[in-house]
Nucleic acid binder design. Sequence first.
DNA 1: CGGTGTTTCTACAACGTTGTAAACGGGATT
DNA 2: AATCCCGTTTACAACGTTGTAGAAACACCG
Lengths: 334, 334
Amino acid sequence: MAVTLRDVAELAGVSFKTVSNVVNGYPHIRPATREKVERAIAQLGYQPNLSARSLRSGRTDTIALAVPELNLSYFAELASFVIAAAEEAGLVTLVEQTGGDRDRELALLQSPRLNRTDGLILSPLGLGAEDAAALAGPLPVVMLGERTFEWPCDHVTMQNVAAARAATEYLVDSGRRRIAVIGENEAEVMGSARLRLRGYREALAAKGIEYDERLVARATLWHRADGAHAMHDLLDRGVEFDAVFGFNDTLALGAMRVLQEAGLRVPQDVAVLGFDDLDEAAYAIPSLTTVDPGREWIARTAVATLLARISADGADAEPQTRAADFSVVARESA
Amino acid sequence: MAVTLRDVAELAGVSFKTVSNVVNGYPHIRPATREKVERAIAQLGYQPNLSARSLRSGRTDTIALAVPELNLSYFAELASFVIAAAEEAGLVTLVEQTGGDRDRELALLQSPRLNRTDGLILSPLGLGAEDAAALAGPLPVVMLGERTFEWPCDHVTMQNVAAARAATEYLVDSGRRRIAVIGENEAEVMGSARLRLRGYREALAAKGIEYDERLVARATLWHRADGAHAMHDLLDRGVEFDAVFGFNDTLALGAMRVLQEAGLRVPQDVAVLGFDDLDEAAYAIPSLTTVDPGREWIARTAVATLLARISADGADAEPQTRAADFSVVARESA
DNA sequence: CGGTGTTTCTACAACGTTGTAAACGGGATT
DNA sequence: AATCCCGTTTACAACGTTGTAGAAACACCG
């Protein structure tokens, strides 16, 4: 079977605890013994048994990342950054997909799987105010998304309202008056949809433009297909509009595709603006004007925040909320 | 602290081993005791300590998935399927990014992190024939990608050569003669680039078209930017071509963007064809004709293969290679 | 050379679980 | 009524590691 501390100890002629000390960088070891032990380790190819280590120490050096779906590009890019940031900190990342479903989010929070984990970064969609209790467990949780409810955990977020407002104002400033939005979703209680809609409305109000409900198109999930579907809807309903604000890039891209199929020119006839600044956005035709919400900063900060909470006794500190800087990235589509 | 078997046992008035037996579904338990125990479990909210369980049983119910980068859409979509398939089998997935770098791939294979894992699904780019030894460890490994070398592990793959050939033939059959390819990469010893290039050349040979090296554009990584860059290259070099075959969709999309910037019409002036059938491909403008390589089948099969290898004693069976069915998905771009 | 203080090393007891083997019942068999 | 047997439960010993506390080795001093 696998090589253990005892095997190494025997070969090196020391007690197995000394080997453990060498492995863990305990300072008081004579250079000669250290070398002996290290040679034995190398010779046998010893690797610590991490299960045993976790059992004993309580630490797993693993975090969980839970996102709705990894095949939504936004979450894929986010996950990529989170995993990279975690690795830099010596942590391994375990990825869960919730489908944005409240039940699955709750099930995950209660799952014993998480106890092989030091903490969780959760990007929730379905959870609501009444689910605060599920977060009360001993496991540190960092939420991605604004602190809409009184949840007892840290939050790292983008500035959904302000960014959506800035995006909308950008459209207004470039002369658009009838701005459709895609992505509204009443079911999603805490999510970005609500907040981005609020930003949109704030912008309209600030610019003295009346809010017209007919310009609002729903989309429960934010795939390209949902954006396309919503756009078909808008076109079918015969609502007039000169711009579309997709609540994320994939929605916007789906919509843009349908617009052009319908013979409308982007941006001449209809401006299109997204949210996320996916890699894809820069290569769309026309390239997609969008909001860069600070994805990488969010990922790094989420990991750092989680680590702080895990390590030592950050446990008692007040829940923090931190928001990334954003910017509107002007391209061809608006 | 956390609730243990002992705590439950005490409350239920049985030995802790009986609780363990209940938890593990051991059959010989009187209904009355089972109920007592289950009530105690519920009351205390007992959850098994998975580290202890792993230590004792040797199983972790975790698999690792290693891909070059999660922000390459192909790998994101693949990961999404793998994680879902693993979850169905009751496994948790731990995701690693290798950057497609040989050293990091090797480092991962030797990392003690993997010993908290029952097996590994690896999508290698840099590994070569000489690295077979690194795979000889006790950990079951399933490779994604053709069995180019004599590696002692299972392979699940797409039909790179045949699919690339079919794609190229599709272009030829629609009248194209000067077909550029993007994605060649000599550094990548075992990867898809070589195989897809071979398919391309086979198609040309079969159709009696001469292979012209000037039509081959390199791209080490397969991001959109690399596709764009390669296309600029082709255009700058003044090579004539009436079609472009991107070795994956993102390359093709990056290239398509540059083509249209340069005032070339797709598909009238230049046909564009990709590989992967990303969600994105259907919504590009024009929508991207591409190869569906059977991503979901690959993911499910990889998980199933790994599971077979893990469970019981699939360990001794001969390494298997299984390849997915593919199809050319005709859309607007070619 | 004995005493003192420091460094280095070790013995032992956990951590919470599962496998093994044996103990405990009570109903059927003799 | 003593025996056997099967279904049910239990005690005990691992799994490989780290924390604690103390033993051993060593250096230094008077």
